[in-house]
Nucleic acid binder design. Structure first.
Lengths: 346, 346
DNA sequence: CTCCGCACTACAAACGTTTGCACAATAGTT
DNA sequence: AACTATTGTGCAAACGTTTGTAGTGCGGAG
């Protein structure tokens, strides 16, 4: 029923190859035949069939986007940005949700592989080796994970975690806890590493609680396992931080009077809660755009296994306050900006 | 480079058609050849090329999902549910975001049409007639809009709005306002109609403010235009309600002591804010599942232009309190349950 | 006048599948 | 013994494109 290239050819009295070229290589066809063809195409409502085109060119003009959990407010801005950037390159986006399940990730990558020109793997929970193997089957850009030899976009959560810990120790907190994220999360490892180092450097104690599911419930659970004496907690993400606050308040502790809480991500949510959450802002939209750009540039120049490292920023709101120790203002110091390629230009 | 059906045929010493049938009609091929073929396929890492299959069968095993704004927390649970339901039917999901723009909707439907077996159009802003026209080009299921003759899944926001208004008038509020949603939203019209009727029935006054963008900012703006004397506001959605509360507090008004606020949607967010939001819960996940089921059943039996009307529910939390008038407990009355097909069975 | 190059277009072979049809071989009826 | 089913497989056409190659007609250079 829908018009094909053949219908257009018949209507305009040319061969199908001429119609094809009218769309894919206009400069090769005489201007007056071209306009005639275009007119017929327009009138018949002809739209090239991408499946057929993909079959012969091998390019689908689709990209896959695999996330751990769409319902986690961290992802939608990233998805949205990736999508609009993809559209700018005339691509469409398949979104898939793994429910934080490593096995589902592998299956989805394989299922999507044939239908897309490449896949954005966001916050993967798979092993590095599996990711490397998959990247041989389909172009891959990894987001929120750094793997040697693979193109990746990461947010500098290490820097963010350090700033957060410095902020807390600067406020006089000496006994800190880290509510870690899920097993398999590179980000969680980074945060742990960096937060531990920063605490040690400031002469504070930091105990790690976890792994936890990166959700409100995960944060709630942490509240129950918090040792007495802990006066400040850094959470793997905002959702956990909010759950944690909820849990602390349920137990009669006040935030930030009794316990300070810092999140990571700066989801929209965090501006609306009471107290407003102090958090490490991650540039998720920029990450989405940068990842798409890398994926689509990848074809031109496959050697470039680039790494984009996006700067994070500490946003101080109302969930952190002075601790028991001496108060010394944090040193905003050595923040290093690494602009994302393809982001600056827009 | 990737193995094709031909490679498998060669390896297992049969014709390609036999390989094809091994996957698409296993009962037609001898069990021992079948196992041999499957073994070869497995070993070669063969995965059928969906584009090629789509070309000849006309079925892509993909569905499109078009939403107004992924970053609006209302949508992710719907997307997630739709996706997992689609996967249960061996389908994948294209997600597209229109940025609340009617023109983008049309373009996206057309662009996706050839790549999918059908499209879920969520909260469309287009005109009815345009939607009807598009539904002739590609199978469509509309979510959050009721159009005669088209399959649709709607949430019974009319009922929800009525319950909300009854709740407020029952608390003694006499001067109400409705913060309307965006132009072109069927849901907003429904809410307006129903809320007005309910207010009239209770002898209360209800003024409509809007249209507004369905965002936090939209709600913030409404706070500035609120007439003195209004003691209760029903918002088009939770995001606006939260923005509204923010705005009211900025102006020194307390919620619910001075003004009561009710939202619609019950996004996760609403449980975490202070005060916790009283809201009309909409079963978004059920809607996503039901819509997918309708779309995929649609092929079997094209005559059934079904309508699924999902029940909503008033969730009373902390953002509503007594008004100036006499307090009379609301009548929970005539709540009608319309279970979604395909939901009950899972 | 001939030959070359140029601009344009037609032809046909692919891309990886599915599927109606024909054929062979086997088993079951008369 | 010659039939008819039945089962399994091969053959080839189709799906809607792209693209390398060949062919046409033309203008200009020699």
């Amino acid at each position: 029923m829908p018009a094909t290239i053949r219908d257009v050819a018949r209507a305009s009295g040319v061969h199908i190859s001429t119609v094809s070229r009218t769309f894919s290589a206009p400069h090769l066809v005489n201007v007056e035949t071209r306009t005639r063809v275009l007119a017929c195409a327009e009138q018949l409502g002809y739209r090239p069939n991408r499946a057929a085109r993909a079959l012969i060119t091998g390019r689908t003009f689709n990209i896959g986007l695999i996330v751990a959990d769409i319902a986690n407010p961290f992802f939608p801005p990233l998805i949205k940005a990736a999508e609009s950037q993809a559209r700018r390159h005339d691509h469409h986006v398949f979104v898939a949700d793994t429910n934080e399940d490593a096995a589902a990730e592998e299956e989805l990558v394989r299922a999507l592989a044939k239908q897309v020109d490449g896949i954005l793997l966001c916050s993967p929970r798979m092993s590095n080796s599996l990711i490397e193997q998959l990247s041989r089957e389909v172009p891959l850009v990894v987001v929120n994970r750094q793997i040697a030899g693979l193109p990746a976009v990461v947010m500098d959560v290490a820097q963010g975690a350090r700033l957060a810990v410095q902020h807390l120790t600067g406020l006089g907190h000496r006994t800190l806890a880290l509510a870690a994220g899920p097993r398999g999360s590179w980000t969680s490892k980074e945060i742990r590493r960096s937060a531990s180092a920063a605490a040690r450097a400031a002469g504070a104690e930091l105990t790690v609680l976890g792994p936890n599911p990166p959700t409100e419930e995960g944060g709630l659970a942490v509240a129950d396992h918090l040792r007495a004496g802990v006066t400040a907690v850094l959470a793997y993400n905002d959702l956990m931080a909010l759950g944690l606050i909820e849990g602390l308040q349920k137990r009669g502790l006040r935030v930030p009077a009794d316990v300070s809480v810092v999140g990571i991500d700066d989801i929209m949510l965090s501006r609306l809660t009471r107290p407003k959450l102090t958090t490490v802002a991650t540039p998720t939209a920029a990450a989405g755009r940068a990842a798409v750009d890398m994926l689509l540039a990848h074809g031109d120049d496959r050697r470039t296994t680039a790494l984009v490292n996006l700067q994070t920023e500490l946003v101080i709101r109302d969930s952190t306050g002075p601790g028991p120790g001496p108060h010394c203002p944090a040193d905003p110091g050595d923040v290093v900006a690494v602009p994302a390629p393809g982001v600056a230009s827009h």
